[in-house]
Design a protein around this nucleic acid. Structure first.
Length: 564
DNA sequence: GTTGGAATAT
DNA sequence: GATATTCCAA
């Protein structure tokens, strides 16, 4: 998986055969045993009886060592520690019969890559090469990297696939046969059963890659928990936030200011783009000042949280959860108001909001909540303003413009869309807005209030005189106080013309309205004629139409589609 | 097939 | 409670 043909060790066939191991063991017998075991594994062993000899050999550079194995005894710990300090660049594995946590900690703290308790298993010895690869691959400078190992570093560093947890079987089946391809394999073993091969399991303070290992382990655990027993199928983009935080933290804490930690961190961030996005937005949102000009919205990613990235190549079933921050909600409200609440449908709201990543479904869901809030709040306001007895049902449904009486929208001006905040001043001055009308989100959105103060007529029939020319057909008086959906609200083509009509009635004389309607009918003869005019008005329209040469009208005009 | 809206699930 | 998802009608 992680290694391709190109990643092969150049000039190092059968790696790790020939790896040079510096062995320090004061016990000659133990040393010879260890040597023979290592040599069976095709390592080249240089054994020393004490640290000084070894350090001398290192300093004189008579030989290059890839890895050191140092026996720690009760009596030589000082020397061992000294060795560790002096040979920081050499991956050093401690072995010992003693079980002293403090000694282990000291060694590890001083840079030992691993502390192995004796007796040593073959597997552990066999895998010591991993420390070499790791050390070389993630060493800060290139200077210490043998030419033969540089390909390893490059391949490892550039390999986000290091993170995912895949089954060992996968790796084995798909990997090349090059020895170092077993790095992830071993890590997999490590992560899928963290103690199966404990060899490279010691926390490695000097090398960021350790956090990858740990991350693997944690990742696996957390991820499994998150996803259930099932199907994370190696999708690294699905890693939960907690995983990223954990890894990032571990990386930062354990990595020296070298590059490897940062590299890993980048990879982690990259594996969860939405998280970065969230962070970015979270910091930028307070400065959002787009409320002043609702028409100048610029596409803006949403702050979203969730376990999956929306941009993942894999089909993540779960969408990210939209966080309707005040700013986002403000945009929403502005869009709704800009559209006019009767035109505020998810798709249009979505267009106006211009928020990247937001979907129609998100809008619809939010709109649903929005309306519910309105539904809860408006009755109170309505009750306050219109203390007339009225059917409860009507009040409850009045939140929705389709059910409200006509004339709740500003005068129609051909293409003018009133800006938010300018919607209904003619009816109720802002000063008269009740303080108690702190509706959903209103603290954030002054422009919201007018929209909330729908001063619709609870009884159009009763108050028609108050609001200008009635627009109900003659039979309307016998109707329920509130037009049902599909009555006042004209579906399809009827809607525009009619809403235009209704929008015009409050301020425009009937004749002017008729003119508008006539013009509309002329320019868009395919649309049905509006209903809702009083007979004289309708007659006037029809007369004007015939005068203009339009003699036929859609059947709806005479039919009873809306009013019967 | 798309959309909006309500109901329901998470 | 907030949001996503599902269902259904248009």
């Amino acid at each position: 998986m992680i290694c391709t043909e190109d990643d092969q060790l150049l000039g190092w066939k059968d790696f790790p055969k020939g790896l040079k191991v510096l062995l320090i063991d004061e016990d000659c017998n133990s040393a010879s045993v260890m040597r023979s075991r290592l040599e069976k594994m095709d390592y080249i062993v240089y054994s020393f009886c004490n640290e000084n000899e070894a350090l001398s050999a290192i300093s004189t550079k008579t030989e290059y060592f890839h890895v050191a194995i140092v026996e720690v005894t009760a009596g030589n710990s000082d020397g061992v520690l000294r060795f560790l300090e002096s040979a920081k660049d050499l991956p050093t594995i401690m072995t010992s019969n003693i079980h002293s946590l403090s000694t282990m900690m000291k060694c590890i703290a001083l840079g030992a890559v691993e502390f192995l308790q004796k007796p040593l298993l073959d597997d552990k010895l066999k895998n010591i090469w991993q420390h070499v690869v790791r050390k070389q691959a993630f060493n800060a400078g290139e200077k210490d990297v043998p030419e033969s190992l540089k390909p390893i570093k490059e391949s490892l560093v550039s390999m986000p696939q290091l993170q995912p947890v895949k089954s060992a079987a996968d790796d084995k089946s798909s990997n090349e046969t090059e020895p170092f391809t077993s790095i992830p394999e071993n890590n997999n073993e490590h992560s899928s059963g963290c103690d199966k091969y404990p060899a490279p399991s010691t926390p490695q303070l000097k090398q960021g890659v350790r956090s990858v290992d740990d991350g693997d382990c944690q990742d696996h655990t957390i991820f499994s928990t998150e996803q259930g027993s099932g199907e994370h199928d190696g999708d690294t983009k699905s890693v939960e936030t907690i995983f990223n935080n954990t890894v990032a933290e571990a990386t930062v804490q354990t990595s020296p200011p070298e590059q490897q930690g940062q590299t890993i961190l980048k990879e982690e961030n990259g594996s969860s783009p939405h998280q970065k996005m969230e962070a970015d937005i979270a910091t930028s949102s307070p400065s959002n000042d787009c409320c002043d000009n609702s028409s100048s919205h610029s596409a803006e990613p949403i702050k979203a949280s969730g376990r999956h990235s929306s941009g993942g190549t894999r089909s993540n079933k779960k969408k990210m959860k939209v966080d309707w921050s005040p700013e986002l909600h403000k945009k929403f409200v502005q869009a709704v108001e800009q559209l006019g609440i009767d035109q505020a449908i998810p798709s249009r709201i979505l267009e106006l909001m211009k928020v990247e990543g937001l979907t129609r479904h998100n809008i619809a869901s939010h709109l649903q909540k929005y309306r519910m809030h309105r539904r809860q709040i408006l009755p109170k306001e309505v009750e306050r303003r219109w203390p007339h007895p009225q059917p409860r049902d009507s009040v409850q449904r009045s939140y929705y413009p389709l059910h409200r009486p006509i004339m709740t929208v500003p005068p129609y001006h051909s293409n003018h869309i009133p800006a938010a905040g300018q919607l209904y001043p003619a009816w109720v001055p802002p000063a008269s807005y009740p303080n108690g009308l702190q509706v959903w989100g209103s603290p954030y959105y002054p422009a919201w209030q007018p929209a909330d103060s729908w001063h619709w007529k609870p009884h159009p029939g009763l108050h028609a005189d108050t609001w200008g020319s009635p627009v109900m057909p003659p039979s309307f008086g016998s109707y329920p106080p509130y037009p049902q959906n599909g009555e006042v609200y004209q579906p399809n083509g009827m809607q525009n013309r009619y809403s235009m009509l209704e929008k015009s009635f409050d301020l425009h004389p009937a004749e002017e309205v008729i003119d508008k309607v006539v013009k509309e009918a002329i320019t868009k003869p395919w649309l049905p004629l509006p209903l809702g005019l009083k007979p004289p008005s309708t007659d006037s329209v029809l007369h004007e139409l015939s005068r203009q040469g339009i003699s036929t009208v859609p059947p709806q005009i005479n039919g009873s589609r809306c009013w019967s």
